[in-house]
């Protein structure tokens, strides 16, 4: 089931005007920000499909940048995000791509960099403020949002997966799905973990504190 909570239907509480083009976009931006782990210096956002046709009218650009500032979709500063980002020295550019055929109508690609780190993800807004992620740092993933999920960027070292799984067990959460991808042996890797129960921020913070872990994001 795509939607599992009544608050996916009566909610989210958000800044208007569009749950798919504003709230969903803010969530995509915030997932990217969480996985980068810090405020980006440069951000390039590419809009596809309906995002490309109507992003200006819905404040999709404003919302995605609000997410990059770590604002959630109900933050009253959301409408001022472009000005705030500029003051913080974030360099943002937008690309409107009406040529590339995408499977879902509301798709965005976000590329971020800060100091020596980079992050790229592809997010899809599926309606009512819910999002899916299809790609992180070149890894194809399938995060449909049907279950709560943890994304963990980590170094490809022995024990990293076991330690994360151990903490999840400590919080008495059941893992329903897990995949681990890496670019090359010993370098960066990504764990995608879906659970049956809601994931609280305490668990995410504890995982982030483990050795070999770079950044953690929760998709609820």
């Amino acid at each position: 089931m795509k939607y599992r909570s009544v608050f996916d239907i009566i909610g989210p509480v958000m800044v208007g005007p569009s749950s798919s083009h504003t709230a969903g976009a803010a969530k995509i931006g915030r997932m990217a920000r969480k996985l980068l782990g810090k405020i980006p210096e440069h951000a390039t956002v590419t809009f596809y499909g309906s995002f490309a046709e109507t992003y200006k009218g819905h404040g999709t650009d404003v919302a995605i940048v609000a997410g990059l500032l770590d604002f959630d979709e109900s933050n009253t500063q959301l409408p001022q995000s472009l000005e705030i980002a500029e003051k913080k020295g974030m360099d943002v550019s937008f690309i409107v791509d009406k040529e590339t055929q995408v499977e879902a109508p509301n798709t965005a690609r976000v590329h971020l960099s800060a100091e020596n780190t980079e992050l790229e993800l592809v997010g899809v807004s599926i309606g009512g403020g819910k999002i899916e992620l299809t790609e992180v740092n070149g890894f194809s993933i399938s995060l449909t949002g049907s279950n709560p999920a943890l994304l963990v960027l980590h170094y490809d070292k022995y024990g990293a997966v076991a330690e994360v799984a151990g903490l999840i067990a400590k919080y008495e959460l059941n893992i329903s799905y897990m995949e681990v991808s890496r670019q090359e042996k010993g370098r960066l890797a990504l764990m995608v973990i879906q659970t049956d129960e809601e994931i609280n921020e305490g668990l995410a913070a504890e995982i982030a504190g483990l050795p070999n872990i770079l950044n953690v994001a929760v998709l609820s």
Partner: peptide
Amino acid sequence: EVNAAMGIICATPTAGSAGVV
């Protein structure tokens, strides 16, 4: 109208249809 003016609303089920409920 509040939604269109980028005010705070509760999506039901979406922001564009937030007024009916």
